[in-house]
């Protein structure tokens, strides 16, 4: 564990807490893409298949449970909670994410560390996470003004993978024979997809203005 990876995990946890706060405090999920939440639930379930077979550390197991439970709870809220579900932007959240799932799985069948069920699903979860934010970014562009908590949620979600890239660079330099090509390349693609969001987020912070993504 290094400082970059801890910062990444804490930033990721923070993004989830901010989203839970937004939904709980405002009893609303307006501006949140349910499709992105569903993709993240798939990402965590596909990535943590080793949850019950390999024990790495209490921290590792605890965080995996938090990520799986929170993503499923948010999807449940957006689908079935009588109050929250009414504020879902159904007509704006129309990204056809089936292709993202299909393409990620097809790529995982081709490019993986080992051709085993666990490793193929791990690679699938890495590729899917790289593109999982797309429905959310499209929704932000369509829904005009973005409320503060939603903007902070997306910002922390994008920042966490940037910390992971620093972690991989650090491990590559300090651990002999450390390579993490699949996660590294996907992580760069994932973080790059946030580039324009980060730009407009910075502008809104500098001008102390409302965050607005151009349509």
């Amino acid at each position: 564990m290094n400082i970059f990876r801890l910062a990444g995990d804490m930033t990721h946890l923070l993004s989830i807490l901010v989203l839970l706060l937004k939904i709980y405090a405002t009893k609303s999920c307006s501006g949140i893409s349910r499709k992105t939440q569903e993709l993240y639930a798939i990402v965590f379930m596909a990535r943590y298949l080793d949850l019950f077979t390999d024990f790495i550390s209490v921290y590792n197991t605890f965080m995996k449970l938090i990520f799986i439970a929170s993503s499923l709870a948010i999807v449940w809220c957006m689908r079935f909670h009588p109050v929250v579900r009414r504020s879902y932007d159904r007509e704006l959240d129309t990204f056809r994410y089936f292709f993202l799932v299909g393409a990620s799985f097809a790529l995982a069948l081709v490019w993986h560390d080992k051709f085993t069920l666990q490793e193929v699903f791990w690679a699938f979860s890495i590729y899917l996470e790289a593109v999982a934010i797309l429905p959310q970014l499209v929704l932000l562009q369509r829904s005009g003004n973005v409320d503060n908590l939603t903007g902070q949620y997306v910002f922390f979600l994008g920042a966490y993978r940037a910390f992971y890239i620093l972690n991989w660079i650090y491990r590559y330099m300090t651990e002999p024979r450390f390579t993490r090509w699949i996660a590294g390349i996907s992580g760069v693609v994932q973080t790059a997809l946030y580039a324009d969001f980060f730009y407009y987020y910075f502008i809104s912070w500098k001008n102390n203005s409302k965050l607005k993504l151009p349509a």
Binding site: I56, N60, D113, K114, E119, Y164, A183
Partner: peptide, 10 residues
Amino acid sequence: GYKENGKDEL
């Protein structure tokens, strides 16, 4: 902790 396939990260 460490895992043989290196998947020790979240």
